[in-house]
């Protein structure tokens, strides 16, 4: 009965002909065909390009790879990326927890609207996000024309790159912490408060320990996105070569230059970091399992 369903489905979905007469025999073949097709598609799309990159970089052995990473330009770019990532992660984690608390523990008019605003950065193309910041903070922008005469450069400088990274990563911690706070309810917080704990004590010793895995998941997503942010940062960085380059900007510029080794090597490093973050996310998710299904 059920196995029967499993045979024909693959055949139909892959738009191949499966004779309904030989259901009994073609059963496993149909299943394996579907599995093969799915694994093949995954390999073609994700796995093989990954291997191609690794091969391209490591073809000449480890030494050229390590040498390419030693170049001052590469090191400076990674330093910049790590600095911006650290700052954006700290700021958006603290504010993200605050936003999640306000959204789940406070009742006020327009709360649903605020909830929607938090998700807006997901709907914005990175390039458009960068353009927004240029329009606002550029030399003739609403805020820029006021800051510029005071010697504060935002756009085409590091502050703009930080703002761009902050913009694209705002939703992550909020979106991971809100469902955990909702699931948790506020009974324990109420109890602690009734027993005489201050608000700060309540947060620090009751709320925070219960939402820590949610926070960690959000932080991991924030780090991954900050490390990889490109479009928004590209627009606000202008074309100042050298001191305002992040790792992704360096890769973009380097791949098409005459000396792409550094860019390829940097790509491998970023891909490896993403993979480690993914492993970390998998591990964190196991601790979050109780709220599976409540998301999406």
């Amino acid at each position: 009965m059920t196995p029967d369903l499993e045979i024909r489905l693959p055949a139909e979905m892959m738009r191949t002909d499966a004779g309904s007469a030989e259901v009994g025999r073609s059963k496993t073949i149909g299943q394996w065909l579907l599995i093969g097709a799915v694994v093949g598609w995954f390999s073609l799309l994700v796995f093989i390009p990954l291997l191609a990159l690794a091969r391209r970089v490591l073809a000449g052995g480890c030494t050229p790879f390590l040498n390419a990473l030693q170049e001052p330009e590469v090191r400076r770019a990674f330093g910049m990326t790590l600095g911006i990532t650290a700052l954006a992660t700290v700021v958006n984690t603290i504010i993200g927890i605050a936003i999640a608390l306000v959204l789940t523990r406070q009742r006020f008019r327009g709360r649903a609207l605020v909830d929607g605003v938090v998700d807006l950065p997901f709907a914005v193309s990175p390039i458009v996000a960068g353009l927004m910041l240029v329009v606002l903070y550029g030399p003739s922008g609403w805020i820029g024309q006021w800051l510029e005469p005071r010697g504060l450069r935002v756009v085409y400088a590091v502050p703009g790159m930080i703002l761009a990274t902050l913009f694209v990563t705002i939703p992550f911690v909020v979106r991971e912490v809100v469902p955990v706070l909702q699931e948790l309810g506020d009974e324990f917080e109420q109890a602690a408060y009734t027993l005489g704990a201050s608000r700060w004590q309540t947060f620090w010793s009751v709320t925070l320990p219960s939402i820590r895995w949610g926070i960690m998941y959000g932080v991991t997503l924030t780090i991954a996105r900050s490390l990889g942010e490109f479009g928004a940062v590209l627009v606000v960085s202008g074309n100042v070569i050298g001191h305002t380059q992040t790792a992704t900007l360096y890769i973009h510029e380097g791949v098409e230059s005459f000396h792409p080794e550094g860019a390829y090597a940097a790509s491998v490093v970023l891909a490896a970091i993403s993979f480690l973050l993914l492993v970390g996310m998998d591990w964190i998710r196991k601790h979050l399992e109780f709220r599976e299904g409540s998301s999406s």
């Binding site: 990889g228 490109f230 992704t248 973009h252 390829y264 891909a271």
Partner: peptide, 10 residues
């Protein structure tokens, strides 16, 4: 998780 630029390079 992977940066979009790295996707392009791949």
């Amino acid at each position: 998780a992977i940066p979009t630029v790295v996707t392009g390079v791949m």
